[in-house]
Amino acid sequence: MRDRVKAVMAAVFGLRPSEIPDDLALGHSDCWDSVRHMSLVLALEDAFRVTFSVEEIVEMTTLPRILKTLDEKLAAA
């Protein structure tokens, strides 16, 4: 799961997956701002065939939180 999410993030942010640290967070790097955050969310929805709520999107501001949200979503599906 982590590797798949990193691959999506890398594609959206224009980086290599190896350049995505495990604790990457919105606003803490130049590549992840509020505009790219929504591009990331839409790309994750496509890749994992899920739809996030506004509350989930607002909370998904770090890689660990994205993984947790996806875990919960996929488990409930």
Binding site: S34, V35, H37, M38, V41, L42, V54, I57, V58
Partner: peptide, 13 residues
């Protein structure tokens, strides 16, 4: 304001 704009941007996108 950043927080509420982010929510509106989600709707807009």
């Amino acid at each position: 304001i950043c927080e509420i704009h982010r929510r509106e941007y989600i709707h807009f996108r």
